[in-house]
Design a protein around this nucleic acid. Structure first.
Lengths: 144, 144
DNA sequence: CACTTGTTGACAAACTTACTCGTATTTAAT
DNA sequence: ATTAAATACGAGTAAGTTTGTCAACAAGTG
């Protein structure tokens, strides 16, 4: 049930990008300095976010990163799924990356207790994170 | 955000123990066979649950394991905390295993966005798992 | 006693996490 | 065109976690 450093750094980096959204681009060293993130590691993270279509980048002098979408149109759920994979505690209850469990004695049975319980948990987590936008997030106000 | 095999096996083992609670004890090989759990690994898990005061054991022929408490008095939250550690996605929002974050630039600031968001998630997860009893669980009905 | 079962500690392979490094490649300024 | 500054990308890696296995020991039963 843990959030990786990768996701934590990714979210914190996006706060910075949200704060200058529409005004300027930010270089990785600026982001790294402001949020205390190891710079080479941050680079990987920004690259993943870029490949996923959340941020854009420019190389060369005057280069840097910027958000492509509006902060209100990016959710924490999206970000964490990109960086950490599915939100579901076990893959047989994931809606974005479902996988049948094979070794489970309840597989294909009408109800598996683990599936019922973890399905509820998944729905709760996704219910929060998929409705928590980067705008809400950067504002620092508790939501949900 | 993942449930370990240890917790999954632990929960499944407890379903078996709940099913014979008050009637009989179960040996690890019976539990392992019914739930398809590697027996030596299961042993470790049962031992952890024993040390935590959830199950009792008897050695020798006619030995085995049994629940100490009523299934309705054991929650999934308790079990998962024993086997996997805290439910919170990050330790600075854990109520049972709080740890101050040191490298975070928002440490000691009035509000840290990550803390706000993950606090909400933690409360949701704990809200479900701390009110989901082994009795609910073994019944196989969705709750919450 | 012999036999069965749980107890304990050590070990280990496979995987994941959290980075680091070297080398491109692109862009802008001189 | 050259150079400096920035991102892009692949590889590597040390440490930790997960998911087990194994062997020796302790205790209860007949």
């Amino acid at each position: 049930m843990k959030l990786s450093k990768k996701s934590e750094y990714g979210l914190r980096a996006l706060i910075e990008l949200a704060s200058t959204h529409g005004k300027a681009t930010l270089q990785r060293q600026e982001i790294a300095a402001r949020q205390h993130i190891p710079i080479e590691f941050l680079e990987q993270i920004l690259l993943m976010l870029k490949r996923a279509g959340l941020v854009s980048s420019r190389r060369g002098i005057k280069g840097g990163y910027a958000l492509i979408k509006q902060p209100k149109d990016i959710t924490l759920g999206q970000v964490i799924r990109i960086l950490d994979g599915p939100l579901a505690p076990i893959s047989c209850v994931s809606k974005t990356a479902y996988q049948k469990c094979n070794d489970c004695p309840y597989a294909n049975k009408p109800r598996c207790p683990v599936q019922q319980a973890m399905g509820t948990v998944r729905d709760a987590i996704a219910g929060i994170l998929d409705h928590y936008s980067l705008a809400d997030f950067a504002s620092g106000h508790r939501k949900g």
